[in-house]
Structures are given as C-alpha cells and as structure tokens.
Design a protein around this nucleic acid. Structure first.
Lengths: 154, 154
DNA sequence: CACGATTTAATCGTGCGCAATATTTATTTT
DNA sequence: AAAATAAATATTGCGCACGATTAAATCGTG
C-alpha cells in the first residue's frame, strides 16, 4: 500500500490481483472439499452442512438453534429447513425450551447418536485426501481462521 | 498414518479431527470472503460467481461455456442460468459458434467491457480486508491450490 | 454413407446461503 | 398493567452448486 501526497490510499494492481486470486483459491478449495466429502456422506444420507450440525451436536449435546448458528456461522434461514430435514430423517428432535418458549432446543435421537460411530468409521475411508501432514493441516487451519477473523472485522 | 500388521490402514483420531477442522476452516473462510465482497459487488449488481465469470471474460475475451466452466470449475447446470442473468443484465451476449453449433460463445457487450474499470475502482474500497501482506496471500493461495489438486486427485 | 458414440448446452430437482419479513415470546418502559 | 421494544425462530424469494436427464451437433468406424 502506498500513501500518496493527497492522502488518498492506493492499492497496487498486483495486490488487488493477489486478493482476487486468494479469494478464488478459497472458494475453489471449498468446492473441492465438498466434492471429496460428498460420496462419503452420501452413504449415510447427509449433506456437508447437515454433517456439520451433527458434529456440533455430537460434541456438545442438545443446543438451541441460535447456538448452532453461532458455531457454524449460519442463520435461521439456512438452519430452519436444514433442521427440518434432519428431523424428517429421524436424526434429531426439536422442542421449545420450557424456560423460554422462544428457543427451540435441538437434541439427538437415538438414531442420530448412533450415527456418530457409523460416520466416524466411514470417514476413515477418506484417507489423507488433503495430502497434507498434520503440521501443514494445523497451520493452514490457523491461517484460514485468522483470515476469516480479519475479513469479519471489516 | 500407521500401517497395522493386518495391512489395514488406520488414521489416528487426531488426524481425522484436523482434517475436519481444516475442511470447516475452508468452508467458513469462503463464506467470510463472500460476505466481504457482497456489499462491494452489490453496487454493480453482480454476485460473486457472476463476478468470476466477468473476470475470466475481461482477461480472455470471448469464450465457450465449456471453457468458462473449466476455468471456474463449474458445470452447465450452474453456468447456463447464471449466464442468462448476465445476458439479461446486458453485460454479455451469447451466440452459437458457426464452426461448431454445439458450442455457445459468450462475449462481452460494450456495457460488460466498460464495467471492468468501474469494478476495478470499487474493488479498491475493499482495501486490505484480508489483513495479509502480499507474500502471505501468495503463500496461502499456492497452498490452497495444492490442497485442491490433492483433493481432486482422490 | 450410416449409425452408434461422444461432446456441448440446457433443463429439472434438491439443498444450501442469505436478505428481508413475519410471528411468537420475553423483557423493559411508562 | 399496558404499550413499546427486543429476542428467537420461521417463512419467502432469489441465486448458486450439482447430479441426472435431455436434445442437438459432431465424430468415428465399419
């Protein structure tokens, strides 16, 4: 970045191009992950966002829709129909919190709980699709989290 | 990865968790980028995927639907309606290739060509939303491209 | 030349992702 | 207590993303 005499800030052309390329790389890698996970998740009838919700529930137990949304960065417009489909599939149940009837508490059914081991075993099949060692994966994860935080900060 | 005596390959629990975390980090960073670009692109009435198509056309000139799809990793099911909307907006035109009537050649209209500078200037406003310096951006870009290549290789 | 196989786009159905709006319940103000 | 405000979820509408199917044009081989 170069400060010009008039105080206006200019971004060099190359920097703009790099940001575009990074954005596309992230966009494109997300699609690639989706495609890699899809055949695995198809076997248990889950989509990737549905799988994320199940992951959260397996780890944390029953949660409100809002809490799930905060953890996954998704709003009710996305979650409501998604949760309805998970309920339809018999994996979760929804109930109003008696303490605060505005909240809907999502909890796992027995079928939903059982799916954890099933998916865990199936996930072994994905092997090392990333082709990264653990240090590289951890490093990439951290950098992306930082990137996301920077972007969210505006 | 550890090879067991029976030849079966087991992925340690931690490695599986890391891969999940990396996948989510990519998924989540992609959404963050989208949210960062959206207010900018809204000003010119483009979505991010539409913007990607325009970028390709600005760089390469007229292209077939298939070529655009290869560059962006999108299929005709995604591109056909998207291109229809860009045509509706008066930014591109579509014509069958006289040499091979199967192909549809997408070319920029004057309005579409003009939009390049307009968007370029607006994109300056995004500043350094990533919070990364150029070396960092280039490094992340390259590693994500490698990751994508590994995932695509299955 | 003919006919089956391949290539290229378009279409359809399902499921996100998100903005805008509505609805219901809870909380705060007056 | 009544009215205003806020919070949590649901609904609607639009635009990807992708698999599956369809239709038309081209190519390959006998």
């Amino acid at each position: 970045m170069t400060d010009k005499a008039d105080g206006q800030i200019m971004i060099p052309e190359e920097e703009k191009r790099l940001e575009s390329q990074l954005c596309f790389a992230v966009y494109s890698a997300a699609h690639a992950f989706n495609r890699a996970y899809k055949p695995i998740l198809d076997r248990v009838g889950l989509t990737y966002p549905q799988y994320l919700v199940m992951l959260v529930l397996w780890e944390k137990g029953a949660l409100s829709v809002k809490t799930i949304g905060e953890k996954l960065d998704l709003d009710s417009g996305t979650l409501s129909p998604l949760l309805k489909r998970l309920e339809q599939a018999g994996l979760i149940s929804r109930a109003r919190d008696p303490k605060d009837e505005r909240q809907v508490i999502i909890s796992l059914t027995e079928k939903g709980t059982d799916m954890k081991c099933q998916v865990g075993m199936i996930m072994d099949a994905i092997g090392q699709a990333t082709g990264c060692d653990m240090a590289e994966m951890a490093n990439l994860r951290d950098r992306l989290q930082q990137l996301k935080a920077n972007l969210a900060a505006d």
